[in-house]
């Protein structure tokens, strides 16, 4: 879309100097045919994978103790999902994820702001943060268990601790990359601090913070499911491990499938949101 070539009379600019005033078009990242071909190939690969697995499991190439045919997994899924037990597990897992994410957000963003305002704090704490990130916080589970009891509490806290790290770091980086000229502008129009935060900082930072928030949510999912798998007595993650111990491969795979679908769904929705935000705000 090229601007100004309708040549309105009042604007002397658009008449002659088209080269000077042509508005930039928003560029697309890749040519469309390439992306469509790539998508086709991608689907082909995924479908092909399912077909190969189906064949391998049916012919006994892959042992039943290892994996059951995808068609059987689907059948198990269909019969499991309507059950009360599944409902209870699903509710438990999803609530845990949401709460863990909320806690991660509520702790992570202020932490990011603090790290931004006091750069020294970030430098000094960096080794601790990195070490903490490498330590499975699950090791503190016994303490949390004793303090909070055998419920979702310890899991929420552990998942939240995984979630808040990318959120805090991204917030810090985002705030750091806001052009200083915008601060000068706000000063020159005599904006109050709260006006600056709400009208300038927040909208400028949001598209940059969102990728971290997305990552935080993903870690909330991963943390919750992983912790449920090892430690809990309820929840989708737990159920997968449970069926493994019961040597019920089919149902175990059904729950693995649930986890996969859940994670991929969450990721897709968040990626779509991210693109929307970039388009509208960046």
């Amino acid at each position: 879309m090229v601007a100004g070539q309708s040549g309105s009379g009042e604007d002397p600019w658009t008449r002659g100097a088209a080269g000077v005033t042509v508005a930039k078009t928003l560029t697309r990242s890749q040519p469309d045919p390439l992306r469509r071909r790539a998508a086709a190939v991608r689907w082909a690969i995924l479908v092909g994978l399912v077909v190969v697995l189906e064949a391998a499991t049916r012919t006994g190439l892959v042992d039943r103790t290892l994996m059951v045919p995808p068609s059987e997994i689907l059948a198990r899924l269909i019969s499991i999902v309507p059950t009360g037990q599944f409902g209870a597990d699903a509710v438990r897992t999803i609530t845990t994820i949401l709460v863990a994410f909320a806690v991660g957000l509520v702790l992570g963003i202020p932490l990011g702001v603090v790290l931004w305002r006091i750069p020294a704090a970030g430098r000094i704490l960096e080794p601790f943060i990195v070490t903490g990130y490498a330590m499975p916080t699950l090791l503190f589970y016994p303490v949390l268990l004793a303090v909070m009891g055998l419920n979702a509490g310890p899991i929420i806290l552990i998942a939240a601790s995984m979630s808040l790290v990318p959120i805090a770091l991204t917030t810090m980086v985002a705030l750091n990359s806001i052009k200083p000229i915008l601060h000068k502008l706000a000063n020159s129009v005599n904006a109050s601090p709260s006006q600056y935060y709400v009208k300038v900082l927040l909208p400028a930072a949001t598209p940059l913070v969102f990728p971290g928030v997305k990552l935080g949510f993903i870690y909330a999912v991963i943390g919750t499911v992983a912790m449920e798998f090892i430690l809990a007595a309820q929840g989708i993650g737990f159920r997968a491990g449970f069926y493994y111990r019961e040597l019920n491969t089919a149902d175990m795979w059904a729950y693995i499938a649930v986890v996969v679908v859940l994670s991929v769904l969450v990721n897709s929705i968040l990626t779509w949101l991210e693109k929307r935000i970039r388009r509208d705000m960046l």
Binding site: Q30, L34, R35, R37, A38, A39, V41, R42, I45, L46, I218, V221, I222, V225, A226, F229, I230, G237, A240, I256, V259, V260, S263, V264, V266, N267, S268, T271
Partner: peptide, 17 residues
Amino acid sequence: AVFDPIVAGAFAIPRVI
């Protein structure tokens, strides 16, 4: 173009499972 979404999607799955 083919694999970026797959890698990103696979990353979101708790591998522990």
